[in-house]
């Protein structure tokens, strides 16, 4: 009975469970480390005391921890998770390992939406950042839908998708450049800043919105776990197993659009988290979505936390945008992936 397939399978799943637990543990460590890092040089005991004292204190430490660091760190967690989860599912439903919010141009669309809002001073109730977040949000959804429908008519294969992504990126970059070109120097600077994801834009509002979308998206997606897993076994096979692939794709794509929009709408473009996290997760736990979804989500937040901490440590006065860090790490990763994919075909 030693090597009964059944037992082997249970054994492997146990290991996957352990991987998940370990990744949660490391993420918590990274979360705590990130809260401890900041330019004001608070000691760790001060931080712990302030955290325990709750958000209602009047001291500067309370403000720093509760109004700046916590929203930033939590936004980091939810944005990273949302990007990773949407990256994973975009890859799943397109059956394309190179798909991600960034490579498909969805982030570029959001960025352009933000640029429009900044240029024309689009405000909600007189507040600029809400207007910016909402336009970024709407553009992310519009671009996702466009890609989806292009994919529907031309087939969602690797080439179509990646080319569509490149086209979207070019298109929105060009439009954004036009806005930057015609805006005053100061406004152009703000647009420019927006295109690097920067956590200094984080606030409790961004925490609640991104967390809300993530949790809802996560719960819905877990209902589809087996069907999504079946899609990784091939579209035709999934169909022949009785799965309504088209409908599943639409649902999933809409959820992804919301996840991406919630992530980039507040802090700007953060590249490659949606690409790197799902791949690492696959290496660790395989393709079973019951493990892949949670582990990808956790790894996404871990990557963001590590990038944010690095950014904070590298900054001196001015705040290095976290999006730059993820890009620098992400590009070589994409390259390796591309090389491997190329060899496989």
């Amino acid at each position: 009975m030693e090597n009964s397939p059944n037992l082997l399978y249970k054994n492997i799943n146990r290991k996957r469970g352990i991987v998940f637990a370990v990744s949660i543990f490391i993420s918590i460590a990274a979360f705590l480390a990130d809260i401890c890092i900041g330019s004001s040089g608070m000691s760790i005991t001060d931080i712990i005391e302030t955290l325990l004292a709750g958000p209602n204190g009047e001291t500067v430490n309370t403000l720093i921890v509760w109004s700046i660091r916590l929203p930033m760190t939590l936004t980091c967690v939810f944005v990273g998770s949302s990007l990773a989860l949407s990256g994973l599912q975009v890859q799943t439903i397109t059956n394309n390992p190179l798909a991600s919010p960034y490579t498909l141009g969805i982030s570029a669309g959001a960025s352009f939406g933000a640029a429009i809002s900044i240029t024309f001073g689009f405000t909600i109730a007189g507040v600029q950042w809400i207007g910016t977040a909402i336009l970024a949000f709407l553009f992310a959804i519009a671009v996702s839908m466009t890609i989806f429908f292009i994919g529907k008519y031309r087939g969602l294969n690797t080439n179509t998708l990646i080319l569509t992504g490149i086209i979207m990126n070019f298109f929105f970059t060009a439009l954004q450049q036009y806005l930057q070109y015609s805006a005053s120097a100061e406004v152009a600077q703000i647009i420019q800043n927006w295109s690097f994801g920067n956590l200094s834009r984080a606030s409790w509002a961004s925490v609640w919105v991104s967390a809300g979308i993530l949790i809802i998206g996560f719960i819905i997606l877990t209902k589809f776990t087996w069907k999504l897993t079946a899609i990784t076994a091939g579209e035709e096979r999934a169909k022949s197993l009785g799965i309504n692939v088209e409908r599943l794709r639409i649902y999933t794509f809409v959820i992804c659009a919301f996840l991406i929009a919630g992530a980039v709408g507040f802090i700007g473009t953060v590249a490659f988290v949606g690409l790197v996290a799902p791949h690492c997760a696959r290496l660790l736990v395989g393709e079973d979505q019951r493990f892949l979804i949670p582990v990808t989500t956790v790894l996404g937040s871990l990557i963001m936390l590590v990038a944010a901490s690095t950014a904070k440590l590298m900054s001196n006065g001015s705040m290095l945008p976290v999006g730059i860090i993820t890009s620098i790490v992400g590009v070589p990763f994409l390259f390796v992936l591309l090389m491997r994919e190329g060899k496989g075909k």
Binding site: P5, Y9, I12, T229, A233, G234, G286, D288, G344
Partner: peptide, 13 residues
């Protein structure tokens, strides 16, 4: 088909 699902998982599906 480049899925990395294991044989067991494929059959389970």
């Amino acid at each position: 088909l480049s899925t990395k699902l294991t044989v067991f998982e494929m059959v389970l599906l």
